[in-house]
Amino acid sequence: MNLNMSSFISDDSAFLEPNNDIIATAMVVIGFVVFAAILSKTFIAFNDNSQALESYEQAAMMAKDIASSPSFQGSRPELISAEELDRIVDPSADKERYMFFQRFSPNLDFYVEAVTDDGNYQWTIAEGTVSRDGRDVIASSIPVVIELGSSARCVPGTITVKIMQNRWE
């Protein structure tokens, strides 16, 4: 059988003709399936994003709350005291850390990081051990001024709240 282009075009035995509606239907079905798949993918992405945004808002609210917490207050209300941070991250200060975290819902798995912008000082406040492998981390930071020592030396820094969440599987 000679299968070159001209024989294909000039062929008038209409071997495709009786089935062309089935081919058309198949294409419509495939198109619809692809459309539905794209739609559901988009929805899943949108849902994930809105979930992340919600958690971010929660983290932002907590960061704001922690930054203005009286337990970290320095010599002036807008300052964060490095001494207080040192005290709370001390391994023996279980009670201080407990009192710091007791207001928050036990369902939230989170920890707080305070760093100076020059990177010289870093404090991590966590109750117990927070495992983060295989989990989504949602973080929110706010800028603060950290008062170092009693010499009233103030440096810019950030307080970051990191919330750990189990992924949707």
């Binding site: 009786p18 089935n19 509606d21 089935i22 239907t25 419509v28 079905v29 619809f32 539905a36 739609l39």
Partner: peptide, 20 residues
């Protein structure tokens, strides 16, 4: 046969769109 298939396919696609 092909018209029946077409009608069936139409019904299924319409049902899917309605469900969506």
């Amino acid at each position: 046969l092909s018209k029946t298939a077409l009608i069936l396919a139409t019904v299924i696609i319409l049902a899917a769109v309605y469900g969506l």
